[in-house]
Amino acid sequence: MIGPEGVLALARFAFYAAAIALFGWACFTALVAPRALGRQVAADSARRIVAAGLLALAATLAWLPLEAATIGGWAMAGDGASLRELAFGTVIGWAWLTRLVLSVLMLAALAWRAAPMLGVVLSGMLLASLALSGHANMHEGVRGVLHHGNDALHILAAGFWLGSLVMLPSCLAHLARPATRPEATIALRRFSSAGHGAVALVLVSGIANTLLILGHLPLDASSPYQRLLALKIVLVMAMIGVALANRYVFMPRLGDDPVRAVARIRHGTFAELALGGGVLALVSWFGLLDPV
């Protein structure tokens, strides 16, 4: 039998994946792609992105009762009075209410086809609000503020990187068509230069997060938290390896042999996405463990 913690980890994973897909979609269509391509990709992916919005909302709705179940057993998950105490009387409850409001607003923005920039702001806030309910709450005062700020930065940078990768296959499809090739080339260039910054930020903020929580590198193999964090870092290193190969080996070949180069970049993108999924699965779980 899978316990409340396991189900909560699944809900966290679903939320991370959905919110990152929303943020990547919004950034790509509003900021990375030139206008016409942005519109086209937004239209092509409209249904999938509404599905991501619904998943973010569903995962959020499930989160509070599951959190309750990890505190007081399954009985507490169905107890209205305890859920109200948790939602309105605790720090993580307020963080949860914030996410609930933001995910409803995000869905509304998608339904009414609001300006793409609004999508960037809402999905960015949705991701950043995760910082309010995690291990960043362990510190008070200046250190607490630094920890929350760093955590938000970490999730936003990671969300930009991974979320853009979700959009990359459609961008590559446009790269293969002569009519949309110029705009798709611009989008790919912009993504890879912004990507350098995002990867650097993910690394720096990830290291800072590790030091804030553990105070040292995750080298103690007897601690499950440290083992899983170390595994996460290994997966991220592999992602960086694939990203570097895409950028510095295959992108330069786009001019000479576009068909093969696009196929290679596609494969690399899927490999990075699979590794990124593994990273999210790990954080969903070890973020619940005692960081000793």
Binding site: H135, N137, M138, H139, R143, L146, A200, L203, V204, I207, A208, L211, L212, I213, L214, G215, H216, D290, P291, V292
Partner: peptide, 22 residues
């Protein structure tokens, strides 16, 4: 260049850790 500097600063600021579970 940036990374080592950040690590050093972070290590000074944040050395010693708390336990997140009570």
């Amino acid at each position: 260049m940036l990374k080592p500097a950040v690590i050093v600063i972070a290590a000074c600021l944040f050395s010693g850790s708390a336990l997140a579970h009570a």
